[in-house]
Amino acid sequence: MITPNPGLQVLQNTLSLPRKELILEIELNGKIKFEHVMHAIYQQFGICHKVLSANVEYVNGRSFGTVQLYLNVCPADFEQLEYYLNKNKLLNTTVEYTCRKYF
């Protein structure tokens, strides 16, 4: 007997969700390391991102500075990421990225 794979059904449902292109700026305040934030975004939330700019300084093993990321995410995944950032007291701002497409 062949049973359906529930993971495949979830994947098919998430493919149809509308995705937004966003630029996310995160201000690192020394409470969490830069590497941990990047790891959580990719591994924990499964969000692929591109680092547009990073101005990070390390003082006594703590990360300070700002990071700008380009994200292409669905709204539900972004809400989880925003909750994570707010829970860790990381100031973040988002700008919706729109690009003109010429035909």
Rank of each mutant, 00 (worst) to 15 (best):
50 K>L: 14
76 A>L: 14
4 P>I: 15
63 S>N: 08
63 S>D: 04
78 F>A: 03
29 N>Q: 12
100 R>Q: 05
39 H>A: 13
49 H>Y: 13
13 N>A: 07
43 Q>H: 15
31 K>W: 05
94 T>V: 12
99 C>P: 01
3 T>D: 15
22 L>V: 09
56 V>W: 05
53 S>V: 04
88 N>Q: 09
38 M>D: 05
19 R>H: 02
45 F>T: 01
72 N>A: 03
83 Y>V: 08
88 N>F: 00
7 G>Y: 08
74 C>G: 13
47 I>T: 07
85 L>C: 04
55 N>V: 13
67 V>P: 00
101 K>P: 02
75 P>T: 04
91 L>T: 15
3 T>E: 15
74 C>P: 02
41 I>K: 00
55 N>Q: 12
41 I>E: 01
69 L>H: 00
39 H>W: 15
7 G>F: 07
15 L>M: 10
78 F>P: 00
96 E>R: 10
59 V>C: 06
17 L>N: 11
77 D>V: 10
9 Q>G: 12
58 Y>Q: 10
89 K>L: 12
51 V>N: 11
97 Y>P: 00
9 Q>A: 14
27 E>W: 06
16 S>P: 02
94 T>A: 07
41 I>M: 03
36 H>N: 15
68 Q>K: 12
20 K>E: 08
53 S>G: 11
74 C>I: 10
97 Y>W: 10
42 Y>E: 14
66 T>D: 04
37 V>S: 03
94 T>P: 00
62 R>T: 04
33 K>A: 10
5 N>F: 09
58 Y>T: 13
52 L>E: 08
15 L>Y: 06
22 L>M: 06
26 I>S: 00
88 N>H: 15
9 Q>R: 11
37 V>E: 01
70 Y>T: 02
35 E>Q: 14
9 Q>Y: 14
99 C>I: 14
10 V>G: 05
13 N>M: 14
42 Y>T: 09
100 R>V: 13
35 E>C: 12
18 P>M: 03
80 Q>G: 07
34 F>M: 06
59 V>P: 03
44 Q>E: 13
95 V>Y: 04
31 K>E: 15
41 I>L: 06
82 E>Q: 15
8 L>R: 11
27 E>Y: 10
29 N>I: 03
102 Y>A: 12
72 N>T: 03
22 L>G: 02
56 V>R: 03
17 L>I: 15
59 V>G: 03
23 I>W: 06
17 L>Y: 08
40 A>K: 09
71 L>M: 02
2 I>G: 07
75 P>Y: 11
49 H>D: 12
41 I>F: 02
69 L>T: 01
4 P>F: 11
88 N>Y: 11
56 V>Y: 04
64 F>R: 03
8 L>G: 06
44 Q>A: 05
